[in-house]
Design a protein around this nucleic acid. Sequence first.
DNA 1: TAATATCGACAATATGGTTGTCTATATAGT
DNA 2: ACTATATAGACAACCATATTGTCGATATTA
Lengths: 175, 175
Amino acid sequence: MSTDSSAPKPPAATPGAGPPADPPGFELPLRLFLGFRTLIDELHAELARQGHPDVRPMHGFVMQAIGTRGTTAAELGRRLGVSKQAAGKTIDALERIGYVERGTDPGDARRKIVRLTERGTDSLVRSARIFEDLRAGWAKTLGEDRLRALESDLRLVTPPDLFRLDVPGWFGGYQ
Amino acid sequence: MSTDSSAPKPPAATPGAGPPADPPGFELPLRLFLGFRTLIDELHAELARQGHPDVRPMHGFVMQAIGTRGTTAAELGRRLGVSKQAAGKTIDALERIGYVERGTDPGDARRKIVRLTERGTDSLVRSARIFEDLRAGWAKTLGEDRLRALESDLRLVTPPDLFRLDVPGWFGGYQ
DNA sequence: TAATATCGACAATATGGTTGTCTATATAGT
DNA sequence: ACTATATAGACAACCATATTGTCGATATTA
């Protein structure tokens, strides 16, 4: 990580220690992100324990986007909101570690269909189970109805589309 | 974005159209991320309208981490979980667009203190107000108490630290 | 059959990040 | 006071991820 590493001191998020009558507006987005990050990190820790140490967070979403019926690089790029070249490179990486394979399309000689291998499917099946377990953990902490409320509330304030993340370079940037 | 752009067809998230008795586990993390992304996108759209078109999502967090008292590149790197060199480059970028400035530390000739300029502070003040407004928008949709519940529930299932995002390369990756 | 569009590949480039090295300065141990 | 060690910041080299632009092969449509 850092060239020179030492303990960082956490900056005071809320200087006053009193009851946070009105939480500062920027806590909400941060909590949402932390929730996301926590779940994803725990998923991949468990996935590694279950024999999939090489899957990176992005891979799961990519494989999910590939789906059981397979797809092509260009189509995948469109789904994920990145260029077909970038999608192609991700497919290369997944192929290298044995999670997808490329085949030809008998009906269209231009297309190369990308399909999940057995191993790829296995990682997806396990991911689904692990996510259920993680959700169950939250349910134990919050109660099933509070969690359901949280989910349904989030559904109300987020776009319905679910799949359009296009995370790649979205956040960062020197500029 | 894509070299060749056309409308992507959203893959069916829930094949059956009946009542989702048990939402698939992977909806929760996605919703959390979408909530985060929605807020951040709306923040920056509004920020651009208010005279800060060049601020990128990362910049806000960096400036927040710099704080009103200023800091140094190395310290900033530790806070954000990146190398001091990377932090230095981000500071370069922020300096170039006039949001921070470098000064010397009278008590330690090695250190160069990075401080927010007036413009930098202004962007932070406006961000805070915009976040409050966005939160108010959610409160209007969900009701203030449901939103409070959502926030407090998230606080229960996320690490207390708030600031440790180290987003940089975390998600992505061919590998 | 000619015009146009799409697929996948390749090359060049941009960006954001890393490590490694260097000099200057501080600080602790003797 | 002197030496050893640690830290700050700058610079260079490199790596990873994504971009645009181009190309030949194949499909599709007029």
